[in-house]
Design a protein around this nucleic acid. Structure first.
Length: 425
RNA sequence: GGAGGAGUGGCAGAGUGGCCGAAUGCGGCGGUCUUGAAAACCGUUGACCUUUAACGAGGUCCGUGGGUUCGAAUCCUACCUCCUCCGCCA
């Protein structure tokens, strides 16, 4: 959520931002609601002041044993007046905040302007595309032949977009999780294992609600529970409603969780394979930073995510998302895209964003600055990495002609010494 | 799942219908004293919102929401969280 004052004073900047993001918000309605809201607040508060004075007077009169019936009558009338005005105010505030909450974040000046992913800006790349003396297979063919990935049985027990990992496949997934976490911890992140179910309040805090409910799995029953679509939700909200000491910043967390996404609206996209699943594993990096150096912290976080790809020896490129491709809450986002040989293209494997104070304002995460003022922190997060897609990259980039897959060196200790995944391993 | 108990300022803890935003203690901050410090003593010490050019003025907040009342931290109600006991269970 943007600051109300900022919105009031920068209507034209917001209009421009909305255009660059190709989204629409009825700013005139918002402006109108804002002025009506403030006018009503003044009226209500005047009446309340009157009520408070009268109430005090009645107290004194009663204590002195005097009659206060006419005052009491007037109070009754004032009370009703207040009630009516407050009902109107509540309605206006509802509408006002409903609109305010749907305004996406302002983006950083360095973000390229463009309408979709084709305008994303190349930032840098690392490594080289592997060369094969044979036609590289898709990971689903490799995985099924090696009997380490089972889509059919997953479909039987759950449905489409689920997977069963077996044997060396399951172990590879677990090895990657441990390897990623160990690497991040060594670089100063605190490991967190959060709940995989959160309440709607947390979803509001990070911006999944109210706009993107259809992307989430909501649990049945009378409790308002959702399966997390990313560890960003529980981990960022760890400090919701808190005031941190400035010298605690930056706070850096690394969390492994499964992630659950309904993938509504992506029918027909990536229907085969591990790329797009309703449930996938991810190691997430989350930082709460001082506004003054949040972009440096974003760069460092991106480097930390890239380090995993480098250690795994996977070729990738990094792009800066353009205004039209940027997520709702993000001010700036780098996507890391790993090379997928069978598709002859790069696929997103991590998304690292600075949300500035957008999430912090919603979630109420503040800190005390050098001048002892309370300010909102900047929140930053990024995948480090999406584990399922890392499995895709490893299987495809490390495949051999005979259908076996070489285990990247750094993972061998995590695989119990296994150097090559072969049939029956 | 059953039976009880509790949620008040940074913390501890009083307050059971009206000068209560809230006693008191601790902590924090400022000062006196001291070569310096401690102790002692004195003073001070919440957040948010509206309004104002500013000084200031006003409003809201005692777990959360609703209700009773002229008036609620205090009464009623639902919910949430925590604690104790019993049952069940990884």
């Amino acid at each position: 959520m943007l600051d109300i004052r900022f919105v009031r004073e920068n209507m034209d900047k917001i209009a421009e931002m909305l255009e660059c993001r190709h989204s629409f918000v009825d700013m005139n309605a918002l402006k109108e609601l804002d002025s009506r809201r403030r006018k009503l607040i003044v009226e209500v508060e005047d009446l309340k002041a009157k009520k408070n004075t009268m109430s005090r007077e009645i107290g004194i009169l009663k204590k002195e044993g005097k009659d206060a019936d006419d005052r009491i009558l007037e109070m009754k009338r004032t009370g009703e007046e207040i009630k009516t005005l407050e009902e109107g105010l509540a309605g206006i505030e509802n509408d006002f905040f409903a609109i305010l909450k749907t305004i996406p974040n302002m983006f950083h000046p360095s973000v390229p302007i463009g309408k979709d992913e084709s305008s994303n800006e190349f930032y840098h790349d690392w490594g080289k595309k592997p060369e094969f003396s044979f036609e590289p297979q898709a990971h689903w063919d490799l995985g099924e032949a090696l009997d380490i990935i089972d889509f059919e049985r997953a479909a039987k027990i759950s449905g489409a977009r689920f997977v069963v990992m077996k044997g060396a496949g399951a172990r590879l997934e677990r090895a990657l999780i441990s390897f990623m976490l160990d690497t991040h911890i060594a670089h100063g992140y605190l490991e967190i294992l959060p709940p995989f179910i959160v309440n709607s309040n947390s979803m509001y805090g990070t911006g999944q609600l109210p706009k993107f409910e259809e992307d989430l799995f909501k649990l049945c029953g009378d409790r308002d529970f959702y399966l997390i679509p990313t560890a960003e939700v529980p981990v960022t909200n760890l400090h919701s409603g808190e005031v941190l000491n400035g010298d605690q910043l930056p706070v850096a967390y690394a969390a492994f969780t499964p992630c659950f996404r309904s993938e509504a609206g992506s029918y027909g996209k990536d229907t085969r394979g591990l790329i797009r699943q309703h449930q996938f594993n991810k190691v997430e990096l989350v930082k709460l930073a001082h506004p003054e150096n949040s972009y440096e912290e974003l760069d460092k976080l991106r480097d930390d995510a890239e380090r995993i790809l480098q250690l795994l020896g996977l070729h990738y490129r990094t792009v800066v998302l353009c205004s039209g491709d940027l997520g709702f809450s993000a001010a700036k986002t780098y996507d890391l895209e790993v090379w997928v040989p069978s598709q002859n293209t790069y696929r997103e494997i991590s998304s690292c964003s600075n949300f500035e104070d957008f999430q912090a304002r919603r979630a109420g995460i503040r800190f005390i600055d050098e001048r002892k003022k309370k300010r909102f922190v900047h929140t930053i997060n990024g995948s480090g990495l999406a584990v399922g897609r890392t499995v895709v990259a490893i299987l495809e980039n490390y495949q051999n002609e005979d259908g076996s897959v070489t285990v990247p060196d750094v993972l061998i200790p995590y695989m119990g010494g296994l150097k090559k995944i072969e049939q029956g391993s």
